[in-house]
């Protein structure tokens, strides 16, 4: 009987703790508007392209890439960056 009473008290205490935790606290933050989110995604893409440029340059300096591979890779990445910039300007 004594053990059962202790268990019942523990159950009530646990429920009260959880209920307190559930009922107190602030509000959640919602994400940006679709337009803001899209702009952010484009900025992220642009940063990724810059990172790729940096890696490409480093590999060239390290001697992993020949002149031909480096120029081709750099040209393609610059073109990609320009496209992303145009997209960003179009959505401004």
């Amino acid at each position: 009987m004594g053990t059962g009473l202790v268990a019942a008290f523990a159950c009530v205490f646990l429920t009260a703790m959880v209920a307190y935790f559930l009922l107190t606290g602030g509000e959640a933050q919602l994400e940006d508007s679709p337009r803001e989110a899209e702009l952010r995604a484009l900025r992220e893409r642009k940063r990724t392209i810059y990172d790729n440029l940096r890696d490409l340059h480093f590999e060239f300096l390290a001697g992993k890439l020949g002149e031909e591979d480096y120029r081709r890779g750099r040209g393609a990445l610059e073109q990609e960056a320009a496209q992303v910039t145009r997209k960003m300007e179009g959505r401004a």
Partner: peptide, 18 residues
């Protein structure tokens, strides 16, 4: 260091990279 290159590439406007 090479990060200097990286930093330039990361911070520069596209036209400058071109």
């Amino acid at each position: 260091a090479p990060g200097g290159v990286a930093a330039k590439a990361a911070a520069a406007p596209v036209e400058e990279v071109h």
